[in-house]
Design a protein around this nucleic acid. Sequence first.
DNA 1: GACTAATCGCAACTCGCGTTGCGTTATGAT
DNA 2: ATCATAACGCAACGCGAGTTGCGATTAGTC
Lengths: 205, 205
Amino acid sequence: MTISDGVGRRPGGRSARVRAAVRAATLSELAEKGYTALTVEGVATRSGVHKTTVYRRWGGIDGLIADALEMASEEPWPIPDTGSAAGDLRALARLVLTGFTEAAEAPVSTAFIAAATQSPAVADALRDFFASRHDQAARIVTRAVARGELPDGTDPAEVVRAAVAPLYYRLFVSREPVDATVADRAADAALAAARAGTLGQVGSG
Amino acid sequence: MTISDGVGRRPGGRSARVRAAVRAATLSELAEKGYTALTVEGVATRSGVHKTTVYRRWGGIDGLIADALEMASEEPWPIPDTGSAAGDLRALARLVLTGFTEAAEAPVSTAFIAAATQSPAVADALRDFFASRHDQAARIVTRAVARGELPDGTDPAEVVRAAVAPLYYRLFVSREPVDATVADRAADAALAAARAGTLGQVGSG
DNA sequence: GACTAATCGCAACTCGCGTTGCGTTATGAT
DNA sequence: ATCATAACGCAACGCGAGTTGCGATTAGTC
């Protein structure tokens, strides 16, 4: 479900305007009404684009969300650099926390996870999104290894996963409340596990 | 969305038969067609109960799933007892793994998580479900503490969360493949974090 | 600046979820 | 056995998502 990104047969003015308008409308509608209330007609009306056009180019709700997700994948993530692995991981976990609790972003972030459980297209987009996030956050770990804070052979992505997984677990699985304390604890636990060498590269640890 | 469990004004024969038939049909339909293809009419037809009755008593798809989830909450979880914390946690993580990869259970388990992202009623039922799971698995940690494998004051539920969270993270968030290696690693990391004292009770660690 | 084809707008339609009103059946009590 | 009523079955309806055919508009090309 990749919307032709300028590679289409007609990257010209109108098509580009339509895409931008629809993308913006999708995010706005999502932020205001949430995922369950998100409707193609709502996005169409808000964007000033006709319903039929949205269905033809995006296929439906799934396509709209997958497109928005691809757009989000390209935005850089402000990876923290506090000087220590503990500080960086805690800041990273808190970044995730705010992304799912702040009133402005939460509905959109939550929608991405929710939509992926129902649409393979969104699931694929989500996979790419988190692959990008893991890549970007990896520097936290490589820096820590270079400083000698973590053992050689530590798998950067694995440390990142361990630091944020408990937050997602509470948010979408066990449905328990999350706060800064939970975020810090998850980061600390990931760090401890990495120090113990349990998060090494596959085949070397 | 608690379906009157015998406390209704007419717990008699027919009502009970209807509930059992609908519950069984829900699980069967879920296992065969999955969550996105689950429809009230399908459950109604399969159970031999009329569509209107299902809507009246369960409210819709959400109610059906919430009811099935409450039913599942009551079933005991076969908590492993291998003799060591490492063995127990690994076995526990593999239990979660098979629950979401085995062809028989996976569609149902997955549906519970997916439905909770869209329905507050299911989300509540899921919260109760995992609270029960955490309670049951806690004995793994209390045993380990008693053996001296883990420090006093270790929060049992927190260790369990850490051991299974990476699996759920890959399954529903980052959408990465999961296997026994991933499960073992998550369990080992949780154990290391607990040994380091990062998973203590709130206020004491 | 004219031409061709892609893209969009529009209106009407299909289809299935969920609802409603009413008649029927089964339950629990007298 | 009789009765009141809770629970169910049934048919018909409303409503909104998604589709289709056609005409209008616009982008890219010569």
